[in-house]
Nucleic acid binder design. Structure first.
Lengths: 235, 235
DNA sequence: AAAGTTAAAAATGTAGATATTTTTCACAAA
DNA sequence: TTTGTGAAAAATATCTACATTTTTAACTTT
């Protein structure tokens, strides 16, 4: 047996689908998540659906008010700033640890990921290009973080990533489709890599922090342009 | 109306009760959490009970296997070390930030909490003494952390505290009921406070990290003495 | 307009049906 | 006797359908 089909229950499936739908924008911030609508959409009973929703509440992607149902969590500039700051602080700390504790295998992994990322060219369709760059960019950062050696810290990192995901999606399009922005990112990445290979943990920490804080002004602007924070949805 | 009774649903109540029961040891690590038993204990239907359980799974206090039900998460020395390291790293970072960003009000709060903590005397019963010291000790650390100014970082801190709680309970008794250990803690606290008042953020970071890592050997010993990790529970 | 009343809509909870896993136990082979 | 196998039974988890409670919103009435 190579890879069991990983049995899951319905609540689990609904959880994943809804999470994806929210981060991909199928439901917008502030939208009411009607039980009947969700049950129909995911072809599922109310019990498992509730279970999925309550998990997303724990992750702050959904808000709940007792007897009044669920809504997609609002987005705000304040939350953006807080999430990105916390994430940058954490990621910087993890990177510093990784430089201090990472072994040769880790270093090799980082170099490989950096190389793969630098080779994303605009050959395919724009949407494919977006997906590929995003995947490899994530892989690059994952490769760095992995070296910290703490499963719990990586877990915290992962929860922050989930919370940032909706904001990050906004930034992604602006960055990948702008040659200038993309080149700036490439520069930051190679500077990061250099500091990393020279095992200058303090330098890595600072560079990583700045790298992670960079998107804030861009996303702030996007949020202001279209009021995507979820104001007065009635339905 | 001064303070609404904060309406909650049954799943919420069950969540809190079960969480308390687990951290207080009413259910031991590795114990099977039988649906029928839980429903009877908390006088609740299967739906809400499931909801409560799945929230605790997200917090790593309970493990789930599809179609095979739930168990209290095992404890291990490895996990202890990982949790405490991650927690110490995070707390140290938060404390450093607090020193850099905390205002006068924050400083006053810390001083007040430190004073209250230092005045816990052994007048009442031992159990009461334990509870009081624990509450004030937590309040002291909370007062410090609050200054970091990031709600998300405080949230991360809180999730780590939850995960550490079962291990921390083991440490607590050993510390509070040993005059030597308690005095050592007092010393660490006042050293921490001093560094904090002199606004030496680097010093605070180091002291906080050490302070948080201290309990690991003690807890490791306790875990080894009694095999409280949850081995071969059948029922 | 403001406040009260009532009907529809929606969330929450329970009970029972269904599916899965685990245990039991009889029987056969070593 | 011990060990292994397999089928039946029991225990258990999971899901759906229905009942109950609460909220929302429309409609009066003052």
């Amino acid at each position: 047996m190579t890879q069991t089909t990983e049995k899951t229950n319905l609540a689990d499936i609904a959880y994943r689908l809804l999470k994806q739908d929210i981060t991909e924008g199928a439901f917008l911030p502030g939208d009411k998540l009607l039980m009947s609508a969700l049950r129909e959409r995911y072809e599922i009973g109310a019990g498992p659906m509730r279970e999925a929703l309550s998990r997303l509440v724990a992750e702050h992607l959904v808000t709940a008010a007792s007897q009044r149902g669920f809504r997609v969590a609002r987005m705000s500039v304040d939350e953006l700033k807080d999430i990105y700051f916390a994430r940058a602080s954490l990621e910087a700390m993890i990177a510093e640890l990784a430089v201090q504790r990472g072994d040769d295998e880790w270093e090799a992994g980082v170099i490989a990921a950096a190389h793969t990322l630098s080779r994303v060219t605009e050959l395919q369709s724009e949407e494919q290009m977006l997906g590929l760059w995003d995947a490899r960019h994530k892989a690059f950062h994952d490769a760095i973080a992995r070296g910290c050696g703490s499963a719990k810290l990586l877990e915290l990192r992962s929860t922050m990533l989930d919370q940032a995901e909706r904001y990050r999606q906004l930034w992604l399009r602006r960055t990948v489709f702008s040659t200038a922005a993309l080149e700036l990112k490439q520069q930051e990445h190679s500077a990061l890599l250099q500091a990393l290979l020279s095992r200058d943990s303090h330098e890595v920490r600072e560079k990583m922090f700045d790298h992670m804080m960079n998107p804030i002004p861009i996303i702030t602007r996007i949020l202001s342009e279209r009021g995507l924070t979820g104001g007065a949805q009635t339905a």
